[in-house]
Simulated assay, not measured.
Amino acid sequence: MNIQAIVEHALEEGYLTPAMEAEVGRICDSAAELSVEEYMALDRLMGALLAGEIVTVPRKQFINVMEELVITETINQITAISQGEGCANEVDTDMQLDVGDIAAYALNRLPPLYATTEEGASYQRQRAQKELQNLITQQVESAIAQNLDRPKFFPERLPIAKPTEAEVVTHISTLLESYAPQFEAQNHPVGATN
């Protein structure tokens, strides 16, 4: 799909999905130079986003209850380790345990528990506490052991952050500025009227 088609679809539907946003970014990043039509489509998209004609779709309209259960268990186990309670391994007190790394490792080894409503989330929590708590505890313990054994490399790693609607607009604006720095001056001379 090209940029113009994505923008037309977004205007028809009234929303810009994360997949559509990613595709626009991919096209802009891979193109040596964008056409005037592509610049105009991006300009139209930016205007529609700023005017509220198009809204960005939230990236997450559901939750994975397993995430909150694993993070809670991770924090509980890290707290116990830092207080010297119940740790099978000798832990260097200066060692920093990364909650995100530990939770991600454990989550990759546990079943997801998705819910779209509060009632569904409550059901999934109760189910997990009855049926999966031992497995959650074991996987978090394994993740902590793995985290402690990992070598110290890639100190430049950056955590993943969720973009806000303002950041999406800024990203598209930056794309427009970098790929079409003279677009406004060429197509909309100062003092010109439409």
Results as ranks from 00 to 15, higher is better:
residue 26 R to C: 02
residue 176 L to Q: 08
residue 173 S to T: 15
residue 33 E to I: 13
residue 13 E to G: 11
residue 53 E to F: 07
residue 180 A to P: 00
residue 35 S to Y: 07
residue 121 A to R: 04
residue 101 D to L: 08
residue 53 E to N: 12
residue 120 G to N: 04
residue 38 E to A: 11
residue 84 G to I: 00
residue 86 G to P: 00
residue 123 Y to M: 10
residue 185 A to D: 10
residue 22 A to I: 01
residue 69 L to F: 02
residue 148 L to K: 07
residue 1 M to F: 09
residue 137 T to W: 03
residue 154 F to I: 04
residue 128 A to M: 04
residue 84 G to D: 00
residue 34 L to E: 02
residue 95 M to D: 03
residue 110 L to C: 06
residue 135 L to H: 12
residue 164 T to K: 13
residue 95 M to K: 14
residue 18 P to L: 10
residue 79 T to N: 09
residue 90 E to F: 05
residue 27 I to N: 00
residue 185 A to L: 04
residue 37 E to Q: 07
residue 65 V to R: 13
residue 44 R to C: 07
residue 144 I to F: 01
residue 1 M to W: 06
residue 21 E to Q: 13
residue 186 Q to I: 15
residue 80 A to G: 02
residue 129 Q to M: 08
residue 191 G to C: 00
residue 145 A to Q: 09
residue 101 D to C: 05
residue 2 N to C: 03
residue 117 T to R: 05
residue 154 F to D: 14
residue 150 R to L: 03
residue 124 Q to A: 15
residue 72 T to E: 15
residue 94 D to K: 10
residue 78 I to Q: 01
residue 118 E to M: 11
residue 164 T to H: 08
residue 11 L to V: 08
residue 141 E to N: 06
residue 134 N to Y: 03
residue 181 P to T: 01
residue 12 E to K: 03
residue 66 M to S: 11
residue 158 L to M: 13
residue 158 L to W: 02
residue 189 P to W: 05
residue 100 G to E: 15
residue 142 S to W: 10
residue 148 L to C: 06
residue 44 R to K: 14
residue 96 Q to K: 08
residue 49 L to G: 04
residue 72 T to I: 08
residue 173 S to E: 09
residue 71 I to V: 15
residue 115 A to N: 05
residue 179 Y to M: 13
residue 27 I to W: 01
residue 6 I to D: 04
residue 129 Q to D: 09
residue 58 P to L: 06
residue 130 K to R: 15
residue 66 M to V: 04
residue 14 G to V: 12
residue 82 S to V: 01
residue 49 L to W: 12
residue 114 Y to P: 15
residue 162 K to Q: 14
residue 133 Q to L: 07
residue 135 L to W: 10
residue 152 K to F: 14
residue 110 L to F: 05
residue 63 I to M: 12
residue 47 G to M: 14
residue 91 V to C: 04
residue 46 M to T: 06
residue 32 A to M: 05
residue 159 P to V: 13
residue 122 S to K: 09
residue 107 L to T: 02
residue 44 R to I: 13
residue 27 I to R: 07
residue 73 E to N: 02
residue 183 F to G: 06
residue 67 E to W: 11
residue 149 D to I: 01
residue 25 G to L: 11
residue 135 L to S: 14
residue 16 L to W: 04
residue 77 Q to P: 00
residue 110 L to R: 03
residue 100 G to I: 06
residue 154 F to P: 01
residue 130 K to C: 11
residue 55 V to M: 13
residue 125 R to C: 07
residue 141 E to G: 00
residue 139 Q to D: 07
residue 60 K to I: 11
residue 51 A to C: 09
residue 187 N to V: 03
residue 83 Q to L: 09
residue 61 Q to W: 05
residue 146 Q to D: 09
residue 150 R to N: 01
residue 99 V to I: 15
residue 61 Q to H: 10
residue 172 I to A: 05
residue 35 S to T: 14
residue 165 E to C: 11
residue 154 F to Y: 08
residue 172 I to M: 14
residue 159 P to C: 08
residue 101 D to N: 09
residue 19 A to E: 12
residue 136 I to T: 02
residue 14 G to I: 12
residue 25 G to W: 02
residue 88 A to N: 04
residue 172 I to V: 12
residue 44 R to W: 14
residue 138 Q to P: 02
residue 182 Q to D: 14
residue 125 R to L: 13
residue 111 P to S: 12
residue 28 C to Q: 01
